[in-house]
Amino acid sequence: MQGNVAGGRGRPQDKFELRAWFFMRISGVILAVLAIGHLFIMHVFNSIENIDYQFVVERWKTPFWRTYDFVMLVLAMMHGTNGIRVLIGDYVRSPGKKLFALSSLYTLSFIILALGAIILFTFKAVG
């Protein structure tokens, strides 16, 4: 479909790109807070000396930390996936290669997101 501007390929009235751009701004701000919090908890207040299985058990006893980690997982995966989608849009010109690259990206992102979510919500302490 011909776009609104010369050279444009289309989706002129579509708000997808606008929403994707806005999502990147919002998720970026939230991720900055969550990731810095994560960094301090894991590497400043604690260290590899005391982070072990028991640490994870204690942390995931409360819904707060499971939600914190889930929000970070979802936003990071969506933010990163959209970033790579944009790069593919810019640099992969052949429609066939673009389809393959985007299909691979979405499949991989979904698998990582699903595995992370399953672990987060089905984790039960043993022993």
């Binding site: 776009g3 609104n4 501007v5 050279g7 444009g8 390929r9 289309g10 579509d14």
Partner: peptide, 14 residues
């Protein structure tokens, strides 16, 4: 604005 909202317009600026 419709022109600028095109997939090959402002959203291509990173």
């Amino acid at each position: 604005l419709a022109m600028m909202n095109d997939a090959d317009s402002v959203w291509k600026c990173h």
